[in-house]
Every structure is written in C-alpha cells, then in structure tokens.
Amino acid sequence: MADVNEEVYVIPEIDTKGLEKEFPLSKPGFGAGGKTNEWRLLRPVINYEKCIKCLICWIDCPEATITRGKDNSVAINYDYCKGCGVCANECPTKAIEMVKED
C-alpha cells in the first residue's frame, strides 16, 4: 500500500479578501466537513502488481480521494475515502479489492 502522494496535495494560496466572513465562500481545501473516513465499511486496497496506471479510478472517484503521482501511480487518501467502491467496480484489471474494515 503506497502512501498518499503528498506532492499533489498542495493547496494554492488563494485570497478570499475577507469575504468568507460575509458570503458563503471558502478556499478550496481538504476536509471542510471533517474527516469522512469514519463512514467507511469497506476499504479499497490497490494491488500495484495488477495496476496499469490507466487513471480510471482517479477520474471516477466521486470524492477526489484518489491521488495521482508524477509517474501516474495512484494512491488512496484513507482520511476521506468513504468506501463507496466505485474505483473497485470500474478498475479494468480488477486491481482494487474492497476489504471489510475491522
């Protein structure tokens, strides 16, 4: 299991000009609603020997919790993955297995 690709988690410096105190605006970032991994019943686990770096899981993840490294290797951010299983269902080489959480 690879670690999260930290380098792609860089949040750009954005100026909200203080407007976020008055209007429903915020800087894009991670986990504004708190860590959502507690919802997860099944955990997607990537078998890197089967992964062909097609990036279908990266595109299809509805919560954008799959990250893409510079070499197109993918990793799952388990802090926010809700365990929906879309990635495992869509993976053309069946490289992602949904494993029951403890």
């Binding site: 750009p12 954005i14 100026d15 909200t16 000009k17 407007l19 105190k21 209007f23 429903p24 605006l25 915020s26 800087k27 894009p28 504004a32 609603g33």
Partner: peptide, 21 residues
C-alpha cells in the same frame, strides 16, 4: 462583483459551514 467564479482564483461557493458560521 466583489467575488466571482474565476479559474485563476478558485473559490468554493456554497461551502459547508454547519453551525460554525
């Protein structure tokens, strides 16, 4: 407009604030 959708300065519109704000 004091704020607007802008790809060069991306903002989240209609964010979650729950009871905080």
């Amino acid at each position: 407009a004091p704020f607007a959708l802008d790809p060069d300065n991306p903002l989240t519109f209609g964010n979650v604030v729950d009871d905080k704000y």
